[in-house]
Design a protein around this nucleic acid. Sequence first.
DNA 1: CGTTTCAATATGTATATACATAATCGTCAT
DNA 2: ATGACGATTATGTATATACATATTGAAACG
Lengths: 245, 245
Amino acid sequence: MSMAGTVVAEGSGSLHQRILTDISEKITSGAWAPGHRIPFEHELSVQYNCSRMTVNKALSQLAKAGLIERRRRSGSFVRRPQSQAAVLEIHDIRIEVEALGLPYRYERVARHKRRSSAGDRALLELGVAGPVLALECGHFAGERPFAHEQRLINLTAVPEAADEEFVAIAPGPWLIGRVPWSEAEHRIRAVAADRHIAAALDIETGAPCLVVERRTWSAEHPVTHVRFTYAAESHTLVARFRPQG
Amino acid sequence: MSMAGTVVAEGSGSLHQRILTDISEKITSGAWAPGHRIPFEHELSVQYNCSRMTVNKALSQLAKAGLIERRRRSGSFVRRPQSQAAVLEIHDIRIEVEALGLPYRYERVARHKRRSSAGDRALLELGVAGPVLALECGHFAGERPFAHEQRLINLTAVPEAADEEFVAIAPGPWLIGRVPWSEAEHRIRAVAADRHIAAALDIETGAPCLVVERRTWSAEHPVTHVRFTYAAESHTLVARFRPQG
DNA sequence: CGTTTCAATATGTATATACATAATCGTCAT
DNA sequence: ATGACGATTATGTATATACATATTGAAACG
């Protein structure tokens, strides 16, 4: 539009980034309320002294992030915040324990290879019967039990798991890297410890526990179902909302 | 590169999209394992018969999504899946209850305006003392208590809240839309019901409950802290991992 | 033999341009 | 009035091009 040919090296970040943060700040601060029509690409390109393509890239990104809505011929509009999506980071248990500054210890409690029961198939959302590996493991922080793991592995999807004892390595890290998961679902809830869990976690029967269940698919095939049970005091999940990356 | 001047209208989606899905499928299916060097922009532009810019846009997007890592002069590489980020959708309680097919009822239990105590300031992460509004509310599904809400509103950030009784409308919906939040943090844990919560939720003292605490900021200022307590049976949080939007 | 320097290379960012597509507005004939 | 139609407009997508920047590898040098 003006500096034909030459590229100006802006002081800090890229122009793209500056436009992006400028506008998303205007929106999250409330200066531009939901429904507000933000300037046309043409106007912004004049304001920022750049080409329409640069503005277009930034606005397209904001549209994909869900902050604005774009309508041809009409312009771009601020959307009202919809369902609050928060990002929940689910780490490996070893990382969590070591982040607390405590020594981590893993222990395999049980391992059974069997033909999938109806219950197994329900947990794995498996259509047909087939071999599964059922595992039970303990994760310790120092001397205290930190989490109890109950896992099913679909041996049809991961036949190599049948040859692994899971004594030296926990199933989680073993599976990661070996099986590329394409989808995962987490269910989080509170339960009262039954006798089995109470013994494993060294708490009272009936004491509150946090349960995180994860089901993982790889290319449409169910891979594994795992239930982690934490004693109430030992664990808090943190999820952060981020308007932008 | 070849069709100089003319634009080919591809059958289905845009080329950009096709490159994106092609590559991310290769990665999530495991065909390209972590560490694998994906073809150079130049090679892909030949393969897809398009310009380098188009390939660049797609690869940049994959890099931002965290699927690949790009190194100048070396190329682009498949990253190993790291911390599993899941998207946790946090809905309005009315929506959740009505999704269960039950009638929703809201009730304000208590409302106190006061100068912030040390505890209030800790919950809000507030530096200086100032007026706060403390609310206690019940959310019901049919006749049963569904969730108990304990909320603090920073009146320095939201002075209008001082004039609202919160009898006809719950604080959550009232705040949304009025105060544009720019950041929120959720903490999720299991607790045993104390006598107060047990009475409010009509459960036994000591029964397990799921607690979701949310802290909200708007442009660096703490806005509100809310603690929702659910009886264990009544509620499960679901988070889904998504490799791509 | 180790270090410095420099050219080659792949990505990063921006530009101008072209044409497609969808929505809106005004005009004109019915 | 009303409906058809074309002009206008804003976004959507792709192109070729230019130059910046970081990194690697090889050549030059002490």
